[in-house]
Write a protein that binds this DNA or RNA. Structure first.
Lengths: 224, 224
DNA sequence: GGTCGACTCAGGGTCGACCCTCATGGCCGG
DNA sequence: CCGGCCATGAGGGTCGACCCTGAGTCGACC
């Protein structure tokens, strides 16, 4: 992702008025590829379209009644066509600590309230698409205190990550999760030898020397 | 650890009166093998005695001025003679969220305030020694919400862990962290062949088949 | 048309991970 | 005193991880 292209977006909110408002405010700057008003429809839509970013309402009907958290858990580990993870930006009327914690723990990369301006929302969407963490100022201090400074690290990740090709990123994700070469090969329908080639490139580009270091690296950057 | 034996304890608090009070209240039920009143002395004492539990004051002079957190970071990954990790129970006058979060993130297994009764403190020490997580009731909800339920899982760990010998546990910890056989051998002053033997035993006893699964296992049980 | 990068794959080599068997010595409980 | 568990370690074997060289296709860009 870079700021020149339009992020592909899925919009999840049970209020039609809110969805309409977001569409109007963001307008042509994004590509809205899906909308949903409940948990089930949201999971289906995100799985089908694999967007760059999901704008996710925290309080949502359906599922197990835990709102946006159910959606996050139903969409674990999805990736875009480019191999980047599908990222979630929580959009809520509430700034209660409990809501924030639950949705961040479930994997959201940001949290903003519905009082945000259109231009600020666009900025937030773009930053999340780029892998940054985004929080409205009054939440930032709280969240970063609780979970350690993530934001700073994430920025530098994509510099190194950008040097990898799409295919290399796919291979890297599987290797870091402990897959064997043979398993990666079967998963991606390529030969073991090709997997070796990609792994070698990844290790060289990231200046690592073994799959263990790769795992540690990915773990540290929270890419798993 | 089991409740029949007396847990070996190190007491860290800058107030002599508090240490005296703890000694009196816990009396013969524990074996106090060290005491300290500042960060440096605490690290030295814990490193030297490798107790089952460290009772740690959160606000402590010395170090980098971050109190108990400095002690925790100075004592990373220490183990007792039996191969279990040295566990820390934070003891504080404060129940401010910031204090709790900082010390838990740094690795403490529990947090109680100084208003606790002697019998309750003894229970807390024993539970921490057994690997449980312990928090005073009004903190429990907050902490578990933020960091996920840890307490339940830990109990079942030691059943499987108990089937390993002391030496096997030491080897396992290093392997799970990504050490190579050669590095483990050097670290423990034994030959590579002996490391192989121990690793084989560990994998067989835990019914795992590779170091990757071991890492995942240890990660899941939060032994790293 | 030529170059360049991404993706694909093969051959061949080194080294680490993991397994099995076997052997020694110490310590403990029967 | 002996059988058993533990820690130590050797020999020998299979297989996976990682590296280097080389090479064919395809699409993008000049």
């Amino acid at each position: 992702m870079n700021t020149a292209t339009r992020p592909r977006l899925v919009l999840v909110d049970d209020h039609t008025m809110v969805r309409s408002g977001v569409r109007t405010e963001l307008g042509d700057a994004v590509d809205i590829v899906g909308e949903a008003g409940d948990v089930e429809a949201a999971i289906a839509s995100v799985t089908a379209t694999r967007p760059d970013v999901v704008l996710l309402d925290v309080h949502l009907p359906g599922g197990d009644g835990r709102g946006g958290v159910d959606v996050l858990e139903g969409c674990r580990s999805l990736t875009t066509a480019a191999g980047a993870p599908v990222r979630f930006l929580a959009l809520s009327v509430s700034d209660a600590a409990d809501d924030v914690i639950a949705v961040i723990r479930a994997g959201a990369r940001g949290y903003v309230t519905k009082s945000i301006s259109g231009t600020d929302l666009l900025t937030a969407v773009r930053r999340v698409a780029d892998g940054d963490a985004v929080f409205s100022p009054r939440l930032a201090g709280f969240v970063l205190d609780a979970f350690g400074a993530v934001a700073g690290e994430v920025a530098e990740v994509d510099e190194e990550l950008d040097r990898l090709s799409v295919r290399e990123r796919e291979v890297m994700r599987l290797i870091a999760r402990g897959y064997q070469y043979r398993e990666v090969a079967k998963e991606l329908f390529i030969s073991v030898k090709t997997v070796e080639t990609h792994v070698s490139s990844v290790l060289r580009k990231l200046q690592l020397s073994s799959r263990h270091e790769l795992t540690a690296w990915a773990l540290h950057r929270r890419l798993l």
